[in-house]
Amino acid sequence: MSGGPIDPAKTALVTIDLTNDFLHPEGAYGRAGQGTPELAALPLRVAPILPALRARGGLFASVQFTIEHVRGRPFLVSPHLHELRPFLAEGDFAPDSWGNKVVETLSPPDVEIEKVAYSAFYQTRMEHVMNALGIDTLVVAGIVTNGGVASTVRDAHMRGYRIILLTDGCGAFRTDVHDATLIALGSVSEQETCADFLARPELTA
């Protein structure tokens, strides 16, 4: 699927979970040996889009998986996630913590959206913020392709947004899973590399 020109002023770069706890060696996943060089390389690939889009009125929204911490109680991690990621500890992905911030390469975002599940739209203020700012096009990058990225893309499609998925701006823990997910999302998103998106006439003229 492909479309025509975008209006940069109505476009948001949306990154899913490109945060310290996921990508930095000292973050939750890094300390547990769960990071990969391929995922760690994503922010550098996405970063050049930020100044080009901002210069033409667009914005950058960082969506950040968050584990709620309640004083005097265990942190609120779902049983499903706890089983998958038993290394998660008190303080990981806590609201407003260093670990839960977008990586330095992409910092600071124009707006931060905390999410508690896969999708950027599930029980968040994402739709309110995008609509209030007149955003109709989402350029999506992040991790993992088959998780938070796919869920966000499908939810955005259901809400009528135009979606451009950056094929080399997102990644998964397995290349075959990443590739298969791109194929599956082809019916609900346009797909471009970071370089191709950056070369659009709307961003270079």
Rank of each mutant, 00 (worst) to 15 (best):
L23N: 08
L23V: 05
G30S: 09
P37S: 08
R31T: 08
L88A: 04
A52I: 07
A61I: 15
G35S: 11
A28W: 01
R31M: 11
R85K: 12
T66S: 09
L53A: 11
P51Q: 04
G58R: 04
V70R: 06
P48V: 02
P95W: 01
A41H: 07
V63D: 08
P74R: 00
R31E: 02
E38N: 07
A47S: 14
E83T: 15
L76Q: 13
A55K: 14
L81S: 08
E68K: 13
D96G: 09
R54P: 00
L81R: 14
L44R: 12
G72S: 11
P74M: 01
N100E: 04
V63E: 01
E83C: 04
G57R: 07
Q34P: 04
A47G: 13
A94K: 06
Y29N: 09
P25T: 15
D96H: 08
G35Q: 10
D96N: 12
L23Y: 06
G58W: 01
D96F: 11
R71V: 15
R54L: 02
S78P: 07
V77D: 03
F93M: 05
H82N: 01
S97W: 02
A52K: 14
G72Y: 10
T36L: 06
P74F: 04
R45P: 12
P51N: 07
E38K: 13
R56F: 08
S62H: 12
G99I: 01
P79R: 07
L84C: 06
A40V: 14
V77Y: 00
E68W: 11
V46S: 12
F75P: 13
A47T: 06
V46M: 10
P48H: 05
A55D: 13
F75Y: 13
E83D: 12
T66I: 10
R85G: 00
D96M: 05
G99P: 07
A94T: 10
L84E: 12
V77G: 05
P95E: 13
Q34G: 12
T66R: 02
H82G: 08
V46W: 02
F22D: 00
N100V: 05
L59D: 09
R54T: 13
N100H: 04
E83K: 08
L59V: 04
P95T: 09
Y29R: 05
L23M: 05
F65D: 12
A32G: 09
F22I: 14
T36W: 00
V77S: 03
G91N: 05
L39P: 05
G30D: 07
L44E: 13
E38I: 07
R31P: 15
V70D: 01
I49Y: 01
